[in-house]
């Protein structure tokens, strides 16, 4: 799965999670850009990604995620 495919799948997860079919994310998107992206939604997003990509995040993986790009890089690394 290449980066664009990962981005598409992650975007679907964001849209499902925030109930917004028009939501468009980019690697630069941060929690500041999405009103409801708080710490609880961060857990919901990441656990949905674990299921989607068949991966398991560790605490040190998720501690320093600053934007969507960091999440995409992490998924690419763990699913390689």
């Amino acid at each position: 799965m290449d980066k664009n495919q990962i981005l598409d799948a992650v975007q679907t997860i964001f849209r499902d999670n925030f109930d917004d079919d028009t939501l468009v994310i980019t690697p630069d998107t941060t929690a500041q850009d999405i009103e409801d992206w708080d710490s609880l939604e961060q857990i919901n997003l990441l656990t949905a990604m674990e299921k989607k990509f068949g991966i398991k995040f560790k605490l040190e993986d998720v501690r320093n995620l600053n934007n969507v790009g960091d999440i995409l890089d992490l998924i690419a690394r763990l699913s390689a």
Partner: peptide, 9 residues
């Protein structure tokens, strides 16, 4: 149904 140790949830 699920125990997530990373997120302690």
């Amino acid at each position: 149904t699920e125990v997530n140790e990373t997120f302690r949830e």
